[in-house]
Design a protein around this nucleic acid. Structure first.
Length: 891
RNA sequence: GGGCGGAUAGCUCAGUUGGGAGAGCGCCGGCCUUACAAGCCGGAUGUCGUAGGUUCAAGCCCUAUUCCGCCUACCA
């Protein structure tokens, strides 16, 4: 490829913003995000957990999407046929709430607008604001196939919803009935069990006398909610409770009313709790409802849809449930029926959306019978057809699935999929159908009215993995991309969503919706608190992107995304990884600065002509490739990121680049050409392996790297090449590094400033090692800042010198006149202490008969060798320190 | 009430079949060495929550226990 010279340089600093916009637009224009359902190669697919259409990007989305993008970019580069399908969720209650609030500002209500107009209004709102979050995902670099963007209220998805509803209804898996459900008096809708948050709350325990119809005796019941007594239809005690056994079957007069209710016996009652006598309000308590059903008790609803007392509450009618409580307590007091009041803390359910206190209420609702659907979903995970990663979550999944309760799917709001059921005005029968029926199924009457309730939002999200691909049509997309390869999500929606997708996928596609489910952590603030607007500790991903660049931000998330632990995020960490981005930019600048004479004909250089450093870094790079691939396959994002970080910074930059300077110095030499070649090669590997994590900067640099074509995004992910693994080169170079390190260590401890070059004398009676040192002495000169290198014989070792031992090499830095004997003595003393501590540890082992007999030979051998080496080192160090002491005494 | 997870350097955490305690940040000292001061070189720091047990050998396995967090249930 023909490139101009000026292309081979990078500006002094990296400008994330400009670069990010440029490349995202480029990728989109080139169609790199597009998935091809006709392709035959290995499919790899994911559906995005659809964010609420009202939402804006928070840290949870950012983490979730970053991890997905890392996988999809990795797999795309690795040659798989990738699909990442994006979209949004209509979020019934949340969206309706937002639009109602907007209406409120114009002094309108949804009722004044009417259902049809109101829904139009929401669609309008969706058109204007609905893709904010998708735009934010683009800023994050998400490589979704935007041509397949879906919305849960789209026509196609709505068709799927109706299809599923009708089929489940016909199979008897959907039913309608009067049951007690969680009711939110503020949102005016039923909620599923999962949509209720229980929080410990302060309250009181009221002890109330219920007078028997005959005689003067009373039975005392204890309750936290006296206002519900107006709906009591019995008092229950434990069967066999001696205190009350003669009362069972008798009747009491319900205080403040003239109703007479029976005393019954039921096992549900705990005789040790409260007074052992329990008031039963079947219309406003889940357990009471069941007790009532067992005893055929009447059900009296006393609280209405807004949380106010209704006509059954007699003179309390119209009071809010909480004011009613106060009033009732007052009235009971007045009648001396209140025995006592105790402080009592207990859990109260709150609406997850508006935080109002949930009112359990008897109501006519639609339900899904979940048990028959849950069974196959449990089996699929047990049999490993879907893996949950990390596996600890499997247990949670089973726990919930095995105790699953029927799912209340009807909601009394307007925004959502209206339930496809029609009531006949004539006979009252229900007709359920995919399209609006002309006549009643039962009587043929033609006056039909559609159910006004809509479906729970999660009903449509449960179908997401296949409804988005065109189901119920038999599409090519489904054939190619279903089941999806993996679902990436947080554990907070394991039940809400994952479990329900499993049930629906198995039921309607006959196969699991995803092979793997990867559950990632929750992001918290630096103190470990959940991020929330009210705490004011929210870190806005977009602000971070603005400030530090998308790549730094993404890399941070990946580096922190360990399995099974929450992530504590602080701006400090992000800025730390921004430095890493900067490092990559600068090392690339270094490479480009040294390619001005690079002509691209270097391919002819044979591996044997590479220097030790070249062979070393290529071997290390190939090891990196292997570990990163394994880590990514296992969803160990943090390991992958940290391995890359370690390699790039501490092997490539700290060492190889420094070695390379020496080889580059010989213009027109083979070494220079070879080094250029290796710099390009390794930088190319680094960029490609980093691309899934840092899509933008890698593209920016890669585009300028000689020999590269269209885009890094569609280049190949590095594969390890066995011919580059070279253990011998790695060991040799490690030795050189160690010698340099020890010289630097002495310099540092002796406070010799870098510009001051020192003389070094080496003693080594191993010929091979000496040859190695001689061959690479230039590295010592350069990296250890020395001016002169000599080899000593056992007789000519310098006497006044700082000493270090590296395996079979003794290093001396003669510092006559400069040396600080005290400092050197201290340094050697420290070194000896370290060696001796290790020695005592090893020798304890080696003197243990059991160890010698029972431990594997390999381990014993290894310990023996270590022991020998340490003894040798100890001997040499001791000799040195003795010499130093002598010198000090003499001086 | 039931279940799960965590406790490792000053801080945040890694540590994958049990066999020489690690990283990043922070801290201390020295350096503007022509890719990078958002940098370079060197240094210090740990009874791996506590108590037992298994084993030749335990941060890792078992038992008990304390503290912290989460999920789930909803005894009125």
């Amino acid at each position: 490829m023909d490139r101009k010279m000026e292309d081979l340089s990078l500006s002094k600093s990296y400008e994330p913003c400009r670069v990010e916009k440029k490349w995202y637009a480029f990728w989109k224009k080139q169609g790199f995000f597009h998935a091809d359902e006709q392709k035959n190669s290995n499919p790899y697919s994911m559906v995005i957990p659809p964010p609420n259409v009202t939402g804006s990007l928070h840290m949870g989305h950012a983490l979730n999407s970053t991890l997905q993008d890392i996988l999809i970019r990795y797999k795309r580069m690795d040659g798989e046929n990738t699909l990442w399908l994006p979209g949004t969720d209509h979020a019934g209650i949340a969206t309706q709430y937002v639009v109602e609030k907007e209406l409120g500002r114009q002094k309108k209500t949804r009722r004044s607008l009417g259902r049809e107009k109101f829904i139009e209004r929401i669609w309008q709102w969706k058109k204007e604001h609905g893709d904010i979050i998708l735009g934010q995902l683009k800023r994050l670099g998400a490589s979704c196939d935007w041509s397949r963007e879906r919305f849960t209220m789209d026509e196609g998805l709505s068709t799927a919803v109706r299809e599923v509803f009708v089929r489940l209804y016909e199979e008897g898996l959907i039913y309608r009935g009067d049951y007690i459900i969680n009711w939110c008096p503020r949102c005016h809708t039923a909620l599923s069990d999962l949509e209720v948050d229980y929080k410990e709350s302060r309250g009181y325990f009221y002890y109330i006398h219920y007078r028997l119809t005959k005689g003067k005796k009373t039975i005392v019941v204890a309750t936290t909610r006296p206002e519900t007594m107006l709906g009591d239809t019995a008092v229950a005690v434990r069967p066999g409770d001696k205190r009350y056994s003669d009362l069972v079957g008798k009747e009491v007069v319900l205080p403040l009313t003239d109703r007479v209710i029976p005393i019954i016996a039921d096992n549900y009652v705990d005789e040790s709790f409260g007074t052992g006598a329990l008031k039963i309000t079947p219309a406003h308590d889940f357990n009471d409802f069941e007790v009532g059903a067992r005893h055929n008790l009447p059900i009296i609803k006393v609280i209405d849809e807004s949380g106010k007392m209704n006509e059954n509450a007699g003179r309390y009618k119209g009071l809010d449930r909480f004011s009613c409580r106060e009033k009732i307590v007052e009235d009971l007091k007045a009648q001396k029926l209140l025995k006592k009041v105790e402080r009592y803390n207990h859990n109260i359910g709150y609406c997850y959306r508006c935080n109002d206190v949930i009112e359990p209420t008897l109501s006519k609702q639609w339900f899904i019978k979940t048990a028959p659907l849950a069974k196959p979903a449990i089996d699929a995970v047990k049999e490993g057809r879907t893996r949950i990663i990390p596996a600890v979550w499997e247990k949670t999944y089973f726990e919930w699935m095995e105790n699953i309760r029927d799912w209340c799917i009807s909601r009394q709001i307007w925004w959502g999929h209206q339930i496809p059921a029609w009531y006949c005005k004539k006979c009252g029968e229900i007709t359920v159908a995919k399209v609006e029926p002309k006549a009643c199924q039962a009587c043929g009457g033609n006056e039909l009215k559609q159910e006004t309730d809509v479906l729970d939002t999660w009903f449509s999200s449960a179908l997401w993995p296949f409804s988005t691909m065109g189901w119920p049509e038999k599409t090519k997309e489904l054939e190619t991309f279903y089941p999806t390869s993996v679902l990436i999500t947080g554990f907070d929606i394991l039940f809400f969503w994952v479990a329900r997708m499993m049930m629906m996928g198995l039921k309607f596609m006959g196969d699991v919706p995803f092979r793997d489910v990867y559950i990632h952590a929750l992001i918290r603030d630096a103190k470990g608190q959940k991020m929330s607007k009210s705490l004011g500790n929210v870190i806005d991903p977009l602000v971070m992107i603005e400030k530090y660049g998308t790549d730094a931000f993404r890399f941070t998330l990946a580096a922190l995304a360990g399995q099974g632990r929450d992530i504590r995020l602080s701006e400090e960490v992000i800025s730390g990884y921004r430095n890493f981005v900067n490092k990559i930019w600068n090392v690339s600048r270094f490479v480009f600065l040294n390619l001005t004479d690079y002509k691209g004909e270097i391919k002819t250089i044979h591996y044997n002509q590479y220097s030790l450093a070249d062979k070393w870094i290529l071997s290390r790079a190939n090891r990196l490739i292997k570990t990163v691939r394994t880590a990514l396959e296992d969803y160990r994002f943090n390991e992958a990121a940290n391995f890359i970080y370690q390699f790039v910074w501490h092997e490539f930059c700290d060492w190889y680049v420094e070695f390379s300077k020496e080889n580059l110095a010989n213009t027109e030499s083979v070494q220079r050409s070879a080094t250029q070649q290796v710099l390009i090669e390794v930088l190319d590997i680094v960029l490609r392996i980093l691309h899934p994590f840092m899509p933008f900067i890698t593209e920016e640099i890669w585009q300028k790297l000689p020999g590269n074509s269209e885009s890094i995004m569609i280049s190949s992910f590095p594969k390890e090449n066995n011919i580059f693994f070279n253990r011998d080169a790695e060991e040799k170079l490690e030795k050189i590094k160690e010698v340099i390190y020890h010289i630097r260590n002495i310099r540092g401890e002796m406070h010799i400033p870098p510009p001051q070059k020192v003389e070094v004398v080496l003693f080594c009676d191993n010929d091979k090692t000496r040859q190695l040192l001689e061959a690479y002495k230039q590295y010592l000169f350069q990296l250890a800042s020395i001016k002169n290198l000599k080899y000593a014989t056992s007789k000519t070792k310098p006497k006044v010198a700082a000493t270090a031992i590296v395996k079979d090499i003794e290093i001396y830095i003669p510092l006559e006149g400069v040396i600080d004997f005290g400092a050197e003595e201290k340094r050697l003393g420290k070194e000896i202490a370290k060696v001796e501590k290790e020695l005592s540890f090893i020798q304890k082992k080696l003197s243990n008969e059991d160890f010698l007999n029972k431990a594997p030979k390999k381990i014993v051998e290894k310990e023996n060798q270590r022991n020998q080496a340490l003894l040798e080192k100890q001997k040499k160090l001791k000799r040195s320190i003795l010499r130093i002491k002598k010198m000090r005494d003499a001086s």
